[in-house]
């Protein structure tokens, strides 16, 4: 028996919206400790990693580990039928399920929707991600980071992110010209202005803005985002989801030929 009930079903809707342009199908692994998922984009350049702890669910039961192979597009179609204020329950009784049941219930418990999504058998291409002490960690407003990436992507396909003890600089160079946006360490009380820099070693790395813009679809999951970088390593972009867990994106850097 597997059953997971989310009080705020809208969070699940937002997660699926955030990853649906990046990955087409995923294996969700359910265990006693919660749900986890790892998937790469078709070019194997970016990776999405989701972890949802059992404690964050209103009800959670998983008698034995199961793998749920899902088409994100089809999952998205079913989740469109859930209201933003609905609870969402995932359920299956089978040991090797061929489908996953969904229940959506509104706050008044006056409307209950039930769907079943056919599951797929997917080859897992799981990557082992080593625990990394990143040499530059930036925590800032997710909306602000999203705005910077969107603005710069009209000038260039790539952005160079350079950290120092005091600031982080986003630089672009394109056919029309060049530019940069520098964001300084700022211990404001307001989330939208706050920028926390933890710089053990400065880094300078270049990334494709197309992918960063896709990651930023997760902006509604968290008011802050953390950018974790080490020289010659993939960038890790993390959106923490309250008590529930986290959505992480990894992106391999670009290098000069």
């Amino acid at each position: 028996m597997f059953e997971a009930k989310l009080q705020q079903g809208v969070i699940f809707k937002k997660i699926v919206d955030a990853i649906k342009d990046l990955v087409k199908s995923v294996n969700i692994d359910a265990s006693t400790s919660g749900l986890s998922m790892q998937a790469m984009d078709s070019a194997h350049v970016a990776l999405v990693s989701l972890k949802l702890n059992e404690n964050g669910f209103k009800d959670y039961r998983c008698d034995r580990p199961i793998t749920l192979g899902l088409s994100i597009e089809n999952l998205s179609k079913i989740l469109k039928c859930a209201g933003n204020d609905d609870t969402i329950t995932l359920q299956t009784d089978e040991e090797e399920p061929s489908s996953l049941k969904f229940f959506f219930e509104n706050q008044q418990a006056s409307k209950i929707s039930e769907f079943s999504l056919n599951l797929m058998s997917l080859d897992s291409e799981s990557l082992g991600i080593p625990d990394t002490d990143y040499s530059s960690v930036i925590q800032m407003s997710s909306a602000e980071f999203s705005r910077i990436c969107k603005e710069l992507s009209s000038i260039s396909e790539t952005v160079e992110i350079e950290t120092s003890k005091e600031s982080v600089k986003f630089s672009v160079q394109g056919d029309i010209g060049a530019g940069s946006i520098t964001v300084k360490n700022n211990q404001s009380d307001k989330d939208v202005d706050r920028v926390d820099l933890q710089i053990d070693q400065p880094v300078k790395l270049t990334f494709a803005l197309r992918y960063l813009n896709m990651f930023n679809k997760a902006v509604s999951l968290s008011s802050t985002v953390s950018l974790n970088m080490s020289e010659e390593n993939p960038l890790m972009v993390e959106y923490k989801i309250d008590d529930l867990g986290s959505l992480r994106f990894y992106l391999a850097p670009k290098i000069s030929d």
């Binding site: 070019a43 799981s126 990557l127 790539t158 670009k254 000069s256």
Partner: peptide, 14 residues
């Protein structure tokens, strides 16, 4: 000219 690296360069297949 910039080359896009792949993640498998950094992470191991499991």
């Amino acid at each position: 000219y910039e080359i896009q690296l792949m993640l498998s360069r950094y992470f191991n297949n499991q």
